[in-house]
Write a protein that binds this DNA or RNA. Structure first.
Length: 256
DNA sequence: AATTGGTTCAACCGCAAACTG
DNA sequence: TCAGTTTGCGGTTGAACCAAT
């Protein structure tokens, strides 16, 4: 079976939504919900395809959408998450209540990306006056107050890779097989990790209050340090990032 | 006032994953 | 298990807007 004909070929409308169309869609969804986007426009009396209705609702009309400019905190969160997750906009959006993936994608491409590029450029000039390539080859290196750790990269685990789903936090921290970071000029992956022993958990965590379950944000139990971390989930990756920031001095984000 | 070039962001497109019978 | 259908996602586009000339 081939691709369904596009909206125009079916005589459906495209382009910007009118206020009347918005009202029809809102009132229909309030009464009936949106269990099936394909039949929704027909039942609601809209000359739009289901896909267009879904997009309009999720990106603009949903009652829980936050309007207005992004706060500094939101921008920092985006930068931080983008550093670990890459272009996984919907995942990033899930951490920013009221913001949509589309909105975050736009703000990244129109504001944040350029700021980072400018910052990186200025770092290169600062760190090496020569015209040759400097040591600061990526943003995280540029920012890093601790030159030990240069970067952390996360690539989603393959669906088949179920063996790495959980890692034990006992005397060593596990990472997904395809996560790497550089520490003191050495590349670490899931096999070779900086050793973080129990003293970190008991002293660093509780005494210095440098990290807490609140910081981690999703209710992992850290004491005793026997909790399992699901490193294939986004929450798990959040855990990793927060943990490594606290434990090893990953880069803080710059002031803009 | 008209033109031009850059920016923003809502909306679309196409692909892939998830779902269903 | 599989084919068809629906949904979700990320990349891209283009109209609207704005500032500079």
């Amino acid at each position: 079976m081939g691709r369904a004909p596009c909206c125009e070929k079916m005589g459906l409308k495209k382009g910007p939504w009118t206020h009347e169309e918005d009202q029809i869609l809102i009132s229909y969804i309030h009464k009936n919900g949106h269990s099936n986007w394909r039949v929704l426009p027909k039942q609601a009396g809209l000359l739009r395809c289901g896909k267009s209705c879904r997009l309009r609702w999720t990106n603009y009309l949903r009652p829980d959408i936050k309007r207005g400019n992004f706060t500094k905190e939101e921008e920092e969160t985006i930068i931080k998450l983008h550093g670990t997750l890459g272009n996984r906009w919907s995942t990033i959006a899930a951490r920013l209540p009221g913001r949509t993936d589309n909105e975050i994608k736009n703000v990244w491409h129109t504001h944040l990306k350029k700021r980072l590029e400018n910052y990186q450029r200025s770092c290169k000039l600062d760190s090496n006056g020569s015209s040759h390539e400097s040591k600061a080859t990526d943003f995280s290196t540029c920012l890093n107050p601790n030159p030990g750790i240069e970067s952390i990269k996360y690539e989603p685990a393959s669906p088949q890779d179920s063996s790495s789903e959980f890692s034990s936090v006992t005397d060593q921290i596990g990472l997904p097989n395809n996560t790497v970071f550089k520490y003191n000029d050495q590349i670490y992956g899931s096999e070779t990790l900086p050793h973080i022993d129990d003293s970190f958990w008991s002293e660093e965590l509780s005494a210095k209050n440098s990290i807490s379950t609140d910081d981690l944000g999703f209710g992992f139990q850290l004491s005793p340090a026997k909790t399992l971390i699901n490193t294939t989930t986004d929450d798990g990756m959040d855990f990793w990032y927060n943990l490594l920031v606290k434990a090893s001095g990953l880069p803080e984000l710059p002031e803009f």
